[in-house]
Design a protein around this nucleic acid. Sequence first.
RNA 1: GCCGCAGUAGCUUAGUUGGCUAGAGCGUACGGCUGUUAACCGUAAGGUCGCCGGUUCGAAUCCGCCCUGCGGCGCCA
Length: 454
Amino acid sequence: MQINTRATIRPTLAVILMDNDHTSIADVKLPGNQGKEVRLRGWIYRTRGSNRMLFIVLRDSTDIIQCVGSRDDLGEVVFDTARALNIESSISVHGKLNQDSRAPGGYELHLSAVEPVSPAERFPITKDQSEEFLRDNRHLWLRSRKMNAVLKVRSTVTGAIHDFFRSRGYYEFTPPILTPNAAEGGSTLFEVKYYDRKIYMTQTWQLYAEAAIFSLERIYDVSPTFRAEKSKTSRHLSEFWMAEMEAAWMGYREAIEVANQEIKFIIARVLERNRSELEILEADASRLEPLLSREWPVITYTEALEILKEKKMEVTWGKDLRTIEEEALMENFDTPVTVIQYPKEAMAFYKPVEENANAPGPVAKCFDMLAPEGYGEIIGGSERDTDISSISKALEKEGEKVENYDWYLDLRRYGSVQHSGYGVGVERLIAWICKLENIKDAIPFPRTLTRVTP
RNA sequence: GCCGCAGUAGCUUAGUUGGCUAGAGCGUACGGCUGUUAACCGUAAGGUCGCCGGUUCGAAUCCGCCCUGCGGCGCCA
């Protein structure tokens, strides 16, 4: 019998459809399949039942469906075998699809056959688990509806980043992961034994990106980043992914425009492809929909301080904004906000001074994008200083050896041009979109100050 | 680096003016139930109360040290 399927963007589904015998659960639930005989395969998500009736909630990568069997329909042996199967046993089933209001999701399969593929031992994850226990068992928790949904959104997000930049003429450029020295303050780098000497895990692609724009002009990447900051918060990871861009002939104002378009593009793509995942995650899509048609504010650091002053939070001009201040600031907004022109003093060596600013002191051509709902900084970016003497001065002030940056300064010696770039914290973006309480759930296997397993 | 919270069965936990054999739910095993919604009913197994030391007639409970984890700050994406 012919089963209705649909052309789909989900790659997992395409693989499943290559099998002539089995149908995916998502496809079987499409309209017009009621009353048809189908074969499904997957893993047992829940079981319930009595001596005569058996309920198996089956899951595959696409969805879940309730399967019902009776002792009469299945026969003594099959019924008792099926009844004894543990959660997460892999099985293949055959049956007739019906709509039934009693079934979760409205559909259920009336079983005529249940074939165990590989029975599972007792699954360690049951009702009532702590976040900590689930992270200890992340290799198994990946099967949960929550992690399944997050991972699908994550795939959409990174895919959207590639599509966004490639469709605008950017090249993907991959930086080295192992680097000889720091880009911003050496204390936060992981050391690696490299033959007979020490090198470091990268914490940004930026210096290498600045070299590459003189060849490719506009580039982007999505790659891992390592920070040995001893941060123990729900917003920090030791290993995380950054989606960065770097563009020649571009000022920071234009980079902000690109950043706004990029985030809107990603959100639009998630809304287009991951409605049901957002529902599973209880991350209301109506939080995100209105953002697409609105203009996202850009304010200066100095203006931010004025807003904070109205909230009776006095910040001395020149100090970087702290988490509490960012949170207080964002109470005034329900879209992402970009804060520009932070004090030059508080900024990294490569951020140039903005001469045309109306501010009490020197400010940099830089910006941070803050997400609403308390998710904090998701983007940091700036124009890059092209003046060798001011870079050298700033490096010395940070306690860096200028000679370590010799090749970086070379980039200013051979046909330097104005250029800018920024980096998106991929997990922070995903955490916001999926409304996650902890960034550790935005990545499959989180690495933190205390966790390296599984 | 600083501050706070926590550690009792496989999991989630109750248990302080210190006091009988440390309770419960889930899960597991066995039995029962024709439609369940992380079902329900019955029976059973399962605990060095994080470690070490101290106070006491008596410590899961009070004190000290340590270990482990979580979160907040700082720093950042």
